[in-house]
Design a binder for these strands. Structure first.
Length: 826
RNA sequence: GCGGGUGUGACGGAACUGGCAGACGUGCAUGACUUAGGAUCAUGUGCCGGGAGGCGUGGGGGUUCGAGUCCCUUCACCCGCACCA
């Protein structure tokens, strides 16, 4: 162990030094270009895991690199501190959620500090602090004021285990995202944010995000799910009601052979009232309601339905069309009712075959039958309209336009755009969240809490009951209040906000975290926003990133922000795996960062994690790989400490004109490494290859030190460069060595090195000689050799001569600086 | 089913616009130093072959002087969405 460097002492020493000297604290400075690096803030679970370490190590390299390149870098950290686990802990261990949360924050902050990340801790925020949630409530009020927060009764996703409702986005495969309990549908009065008003802009502006991964943009695009079509109404025979449907295929309207309503459709009861079918329809509806969301909507579930006995009238041809109810139509989307065209929609086709409903072809493809009974599957391709009256002969595209126009003209319907995106359900029947700032007055109705009364404080003295129900429901002091308008007795809203509301604007708060009048100042956000580089896991590709974009657009609209997109560049880091699987307690394959930092130090942990894999890919944890990173840092340590004495009196910069070949080669390596590392960090975030280049430089310096004659200027330049290039990755050891070398100012205050093009000029380079594309020899040639020179050299080469003597040379391909390929034919 | 991604030594991974496949690290082998080594240093390490040489980037085909990289086709695995009318 005595051979190894004392990382414990060194890391503690420099972390204290940086903190005492306010190294990473920044203020707005219009004379310098700004750069805002942000890693997704963590939920304070109390334990830092490897995913966090990876996330923050990546961000720290970017932050330190940008700082060294002259940017004024904002790199803050905080806590996404509201949420259910705190309440569960309260139930389980009797600790108050606030206490539990703040203890966790303290613990995690301490762990985080041992990593030596360049955070400006003066800007630390916690979303559960009243200073912060005051403004989360402010956001709600602004949205309310602009008609974008509203309450409605809807069939919502209810998690029986978490005892709360969930947003659509939080339901994964019919189960609660958090606890995986099957989600139920419940009809409740809930608060929503009208994100659908922004659907088109959220979609369009994805185009303005070239710095986002295609994958994330595609996921958002699909989630928004824009589809163009036509909405129209049909008369119902014998009833004074209209049935409205949405379709993307108005061109197939003459092929409608039945209609389908979702079981929950409000018209169902009226349609069947007094009919012989009434009983079986009601039974069917009841059975569907009892099914879980999962079983109801799974693709696997077989399509089934019942005829209602009622008929609608096709407005295009006056035909009577039977109305069915079926499981495959969702009340959630469109109008909850469809026109069914079995010939040209696979779902309708399957259903029609099952129930012997006629199939009528109205689009004729090149090789498709005209008789519906001959179809093996629905035909969804292009073709010409048939059986469609005066519209016959039109293409699908033309038909869509013409029929939509006809419907509009005759008051039947009109072209519409439908989105899959739903409004964002933000009510949570939980305690540990930001209270929704609303008061219900028997006289005045729903009244927003006046801005001046914010924050609506979460009461701390509350009783947690084992049922898991929110204690706010029993907190009389909280919910009993007076109406801000009439002063009469009134009741507070006891629901709190989804924690995603808190995280939809935290990046703005970092810009002016101590502001008390407003969530942030325009001055600060104008300088810092947008976030130049945002880094986090893909699991937030839809939820958080969509909500944050929505908030940003809203804040732009109300002139609080001058940007329309919060995150210019997005890096989605891969997971940290062990034995091919995600680290998890249940699998028992967790490696704790604390252990690793204790055994090897933060520099080793950071270096390994950055070296093992490029950031966007998954990373396989390897204990041996960690050893390797540690060995490398020790090699650097020995290299530098063994050189210090010899280099003490060497002053840089020096004149590098007359160098022997070995010195010249080292200098070449030094500057080639500067170039490579700069490009790898700047352009591609390929930290793994940047580190491997630094390792190569280390190897080259070690080899050079075995030389009898050493140019100490070149050696010193190489070693100093090595440290500077390595310092964003391993900030402590490089700082220590830098100071041991006699440098007076911190390595982190150095400018990022610029390579000297002169040093990269070589006299001789290696080129490859090929015969018909196969490598036959490698030779050194003067770097300036012309094509003619290269041709001559190649043809004069003994190996080439020998191997081509019995052959005809067909042609010679010359790529200067790379190769000569002699093509022979026989 | 739709959309996206990934397949390269024993392993993690390099190879930027088609131009030396396997950088760097791990592992392994041999050697040095050593009372000892799981420390350190040196050398070697894709496969087959004694050798010249041949073969090699999931499989098959193509374009090209030249393909991990481009095109077609096929397989495997991963991720997202999933009856969205």
């Amino acid at each position: 162990m005595e051979h190894n460097y004392d990382f414990k002492a060194i890391e503690a020493k420099w972390q204290a030094y940086w903190e005492e000297n306010h190294f990473y604290e920044v203020t707005e400075d219009i004379t310098r270009p700004k750069y805002y690096v942000l890693e997704m803030f963590p939920y304070p679970s109390g334990n830092l895991h490897m995913g966090h370490v990876r996330n923050y190590a990546i961000g720290d390299v970017v932050a330190r690199f940008k700082t060294m390149n002259g940017y004024n870098v904002l790199h803050p950290m905080g806590w996404d501190a509201f949420g259910l686990p705190a309440e569960n802990a309260a139930l389980k261990h009797g600790a108050h959620p606030a206490e539990w949360t703040y203890d966790n924050i303290a613990a995690m902050k301490a762990q985080l500090k041992t990593l030596g990340i360049s955070y400006d801790w003066t800007r630390e925020i916690a979303t559960c602090s009243p200073d912060y949630y005051k403004f989360t409530q402010w956001m709600f009020l602004k949205l309310y004021e602009h008609g974008l927060a509203y309450k409605k009764s809807a069939a919502v996703n209810w998690c029986p285990s978490c005892q709360t409702v969930l947003a659509n986005e939080q339901v994964v495969e019919g189960a609660c995202e958090r606890c995986e309990t099957a989600v139920e549908k419940k009809k409740l009065e809930q608060w929503f944010f009208k994100i659908t008003d922004y659907a088109q802009r959220l979609l369009d502006d994805l185009e303005k995000l070239p710095g986002w991964p295609e994958k994330v943009k595609t996921m958002q695009k699909n989630w928004i799910g824009r589809s163009e079509g036509c909405q129209f109404s049909m008369e119902i025979e014998g009833l004074d009601e209209k049935l409205t449907v949405f379709t993307t295929r108005p061109d197939t309207v003459f092929g409608v052979t039945y209609m389908v309503l979702a079981p929950e459709h409000p018209l169902v009861e009226k349609l069947v009232a007094g009919r012989p079918e009434e009983k079986q329809v009601k039974e069917f509806v009841k059975r569907m309601q009892l099914l879980s969301e999962m079983a109801r909507t799974s693709t696997e579930a077989e399509k089934e339905g019942v005829f209602t006995g009622a008929y609608a009238i096709n407005p295009m041809n006056g035909e009577k069309v039977p109305i069915w109810i079926a499981n495959y139509v969702l009340m959630d989307y469109g109008t909850g009712a469809i026109m069914a065209v079995p010939a040209h929609d696979q779902r309708d086709f399957d259903f029609a075959r099952k129930y012997n409903i006629p199939i009528r072809v109205v689009i004729k493809g090149e090789d498709t039958p005209i008789d519906g009974s001959q179809l093996a599957e629905a035909y969804t391709g292009d073709g010409l309209m048939v059986n469609s009256g005066s519209f016959d002969g039109l293409s699908v595209e033309e038909g869509k336009a013409k029929i939509t126009a006809y419907m509009k003209e005759h008051g039947i319907g009109e072209g519409t755009v439908n989105f899959r995106l739903r409004d964002w359900l933000i009510s949570r029947q939980r305690y540990w969240g930001a209270p929704i700032p609303i008061i219900y007055c028997p006289q005045c109705g729903t009244v927003p809490v006046p801005e001046k009364d914010l924050p609506v404080l979460l009461p701390t003295d509350v009783e947690f009951r084992p049922s898991g129900e929110s204690p706010l429901n029993y907190a009389e002091d909280f919910y009993k209040t007076s109406c801000p308008v009439c002063g009469g007795d009134a009741r507070r809203e006891t629901d709190t906000m989804d924690t995603f509301v808190c995280s939809s604007w935290y990046f703005d708060r970092y810009c002016s975290p101590h502001e008390t009048e407003l969530p942030f100042t325009r001055e600060a956000t104008d300088y810092w926003m947008a976030v130049d580089q945002y880094i986090g896991g893909v699991e937030h590709a839809i939820l958080h990133l969509m909500y944050a974009r929505f908030f940003t657009k809203f804040l732009y609209d109300i002139k609080m922000l001058s940007v329309q997109e919060p995150f210019t560049n997005l890096l989605t880091q891969g997971m940290v795996l062990k034995d091919g699987a995600k680290m998890s307690k249940s699998r028992g394959n967790v490696v704790s960062p604390e252990e690793i930092i204790n055994a090897y130090g933060a520099d080793t942990a950071r270096l390994f994690i950055l070296f093992a894999s490029p950031p966007e890919r998954d990373l396989e944890w390897s204990d041996q790989g960690v050893e390797g990173a540690y060995r490398f840092l020790n090699r650097v340590w020995r290299l530098v400490t063994n050189s210090i004495e010899a280099l003490q009196s060497v002053n840089l910069p020096a004149d590098y004109k007359e160098l022997d070949p070995a010195a010249k080669a080292l200098r070449f390596k030094t500057h080639a490494t500067i170039k490579k590392v700069s490009e790898d960090i700047e352009e591609r975030f390929n930290f793994n290859t940047a580190i491997s280049a630094i390792m190569e430089l280390t190897n080259a310096i070690n080899a050079y030190r075995d030389q009898e004659e050493q140019d100490l200027c070149v050696l010193k330049e190489a070693i100093q460069t090595l440290l500077v290039l390595l310092c964003p990755f391993a900030p402590h050891i490089t700082e220590e060595l830098w100071s041991m070398m006699g440098n007076q100012t911190s390595i982190h205050l150095q400018s990022w090195p610029v390579y000297d093009p002169e040093a990269l000029v070589q006299d001789e380079i290696e080129i490859v000689l090929q015969i018909s594309g196969k490598v036959r020899d490698r030779i050194m040639v003067p770097a300036q050799a012309s094509e003619d020179d290269l041709r001559a050299i190649a043809l004069d080469n003994p190996k080439i001569k020998e191997l081509t003597k019995a052959q005809n040379i067909a042609k010679i391909i010359i790529v200067p600086g790379k190769l000569v390929n002699v093509v022979v034919k026989h």
